[in-house]
Amino acid sequence: MTALISIFLVAVLSENYVLSKFLGICPFLGVSKKLDTALGMSFAVIFVIVVATAVTYPIHTYILVPNGLDYLQTLLFILIIAALVQLVEIVLKKYMPKLYQSLGIYLPLITTNCAVLGVAILVTQRTSESYGYLHALVNALGAGAGYLVAMFLFSGVRERIEQSDVPEFLKGMPITLIGAAIVALSFLGFQGIA
């Protein structure tokens, strides 16, 4: 149990997938302009990361590795994720229209979010004996939660940047990136945890 909690906390804070591993930067910079869209995107990411890991991890461990097919990992994972996102979209549309309305618009864009593929590949690379399916799932959940935390904090920073007087040559993207640098710097403080 402690191991699970520590995996979760490490994934959320000290090894935040966005701010210290640079996964999923495009949507991190793209949709963080407003708080509500940032939150919508993050929840969609959490959902897809967990579902994608839940499906790809057993496929990798029980089908690819025993048959010596692990070189197909990249190809297979991205196809599984793309198909899965489609499936989730169809199911949500039919059975949970409320949820679809709030997450639906983000789903097609998540296929190419490298955080999803990145987490799915990274968990298969942990080779220690004690690292099982449950650990992989908790790690995926932590990665998603870390995404949420980063998006939430950064959209707050950006709303403040919008209102401030920025030097002409830094307007637009440069100041956004420098803001991200400072948020990433603050996450360095978590480095000592776990």
């Binding site: 991200a180 640098a181 990433a184 360095l188």
Partner: peptide, 14 residues
């Protein structure tokens, strides 16, 4: 470190 990456990239775009 990661923070430096964001910073240098921002400056390069500027």
């Amino acid at each position: 470190l990661p923070a430096g990456g964001f910073f240098v990239f921002g400056m390069l775009i500027a």
